[in-house]
Amino acid sequence: MVRLHFIKPGLWTTVQDNGRIGYQNFGVPVGGVMDKKAAQQANQLVGNSLETPILEITMLGPQIIFQGDCQIAITGADLSPTLNKQPISNYETIHVSSNSVLAFGQLRQGCRTYLAVRGQWKIKPWLGSCSAMPFGDKTATPQSLIQKDSFIDVQTLPLIAPQRTALEDRPVFKKIVKIALMAGPEWNYLTLRQVAHLFSTTYKIHKDSNRMGYRLDPSLPNFEFSSPLISSGIVPGTVQVTNEGQLIILLLDAQTMGGYPRIGNITQDAINNLAQAKPGDSIRFEFKEDK
């Protein structure tokens, strides 16, 4: 058994897995890792199944003392990780001996870092998932929202031979993130001029952006819709437009219902890439056909 003791929690550190699928009829957000690709790569590097929980770390890393030996892997954003003050690399299996301290430093690129630990995580799931429920009743997933002096226990497994992710499979962080957008249910609410705006504007990610959704600036020009919509379902990746014309890309922790026009949906790859863009970063939409 290895115990992770969080000396510092970091800015927003949560336990995530593939989310809480099948309870959306009760209004439960899907949840789960924001950058699925990076999370899967981390679990693969330590020989875990892809369903194994993982830590999602946002922009400012935690500080963790490991009580027990284990193998870990770090993927996604480069947060200058160190083990006992020695720099370590992302995208490879790393052996951690008992009483080591894992810390993070400057955010070099990306937004979300994933930390996989080899073994079975002793986290109590809620509705089939260990993903943190950050709102509503927080007692649903008390172990999954990391705070100062939180603990996570992982039942360790026999060591595997260390691995590395091939260079070509690692992310390339771009200054302007390209987001593939498909037409959504209310696509025809847009005028030609607004469509032109959508695909010719470099949008900035607003500071009020998180796992629920990313808000974009500037707003669509002259957006007005005639009659309010009757509330209807929302899925992760839905792009909606508010009454003021602001675009919001709804993400994994978004609510399941909305009343704004859903003009588009972004692809799973686009969600992965967007998860590595932070407030202040820039994105551009590219049109993607349905098929």
Binding site: I21, N25, I230, S231, G233, M257
Partner: peptide, 22 residues
């Protein structure tokens, strides 16, 4: 089929495209 979201006058059906095509 992974989940459903019934609403006033709509039904959203989430699916895994690796298991069933649109």
């Amino acid at each position: 089929v992974l989940y459903q979201i019934p609403a006033y006058c709509s039904l959203t059906i989430g699916f895994n495209p690796e298991l069933i095509a649109y």
